[in-house]
Design a protein around this nucleic acid. Structure first.
Lengths: 159, 159
DNA sequence: TATTGTTATACTCTATAACTATA
DNA sequence: TATAGTTATAGAGTATAACAATA
């Protein structure tokens, strides 16, 4: 099943000293997964002091940037299933970082806001996240980060 | 979708008409996650007929490309925890796609191989995966795929 | 002692159906 | 009837401790 073009392969030994990825070296899905895990791990280290995971960070950013949004709005924006969001916002509220207010206009929905403590924590988180992004940018070389953001956006915004 | 009743459509309230991503638009971790989910979803559609998830596909490729590898070898290669691999290989073996043979050299370890059925299924899977990659390449524009592979490798191989 | 495969376990993330209260 | 938030639940994916067989 190996069809390497244009490369003279040494005769395969009985058992390769080290296992090889084969086709996976050029598999976007595979590399995307590995890269995402590596990046999330780095993010986790960097923001360990705040006990903030990437998903929670995204929710805080979304609320901060769109004060008064409903839970459904945030779910739509971040691609979270509405039932799964309940535990997330429960936790942020229990930690005193965000709060729900029953919307006056439509009493079915909750209006979301950050508390003062939430804003302070987010400020610190954004600083740490910037350092994290810088570390990644260094690995990607000049222009690499912007190019990568552009390419990822094309995949993420596909439908 | 349009409200053609007696009352006009409610105008957007204080909140922005559409919520915005803010800082997340330039967040590598966030975009990596969204892109990976989109790509895995496309992969899932494409390979639905084979009932093969990305992880299983990766394992089949790894065994095919490194016949006789041990479970630990595959785990090391793909970044899978050894305990988690047991259920994966159990399933592939139960489906008649791979098999474990107790290694003669070191009887602690299992030697992994694809069955004839496993090779046939993988052949088909690789064909479908190529179509999947082509679809992604089209979205990424000329040169985009190679550039993305290169950038992702830098992140994935970080430590 | 160290390693391979394994069991047990737990926590996160994701997905769906169905309920309630409002609209 | 439809929507927002919720509950319950289930399935993947991932992580660690510990044990038996083997080295």
């Amino acid at each position: 099943m190996s069809a390497d073009r244009s490369s003279v392969r040494k005769p395969a030994a009985a058992a390769p000293a080290t296992a090889e990825l084969g086709l996976l070296r050029d598999d976007l899905g595979y590399l995307l997964r590995r890269a995402q895990l590596a990046v999330f791990a780095d993010f986790g280290e960097k923001l360990a002091e705040l006990q903030l995971r990437p998903g929670q960070f995204a929710v805080l950013i979304a609320i901060d940037h769109n004060p008064g949004v409903t839970q459904s709005d945030v779910c739509q924006l971040l691609g979270i299933q509405r039932p799964n969001f309940v535990a997330v916002i429960d936790d942020l509220e229990a930690r005193g970082l965000a709060r729900r207010t029953s919307s006056a206009a439509d009493r079915r929905s909750n209006s979301l806001l950050l508390t003062a403590a939430g804003k302070r924590l987010l400020q610190r988180a954004v600083d740490l996240q910037r350092e994290h992004e810088s570390r990644l940018a260094r690995r990607l070389g000049p222009g690499g980060r912007q190019t990568l953001l552009e390419l990822l956006s094309r995949l993420a915004n596909a439908e």
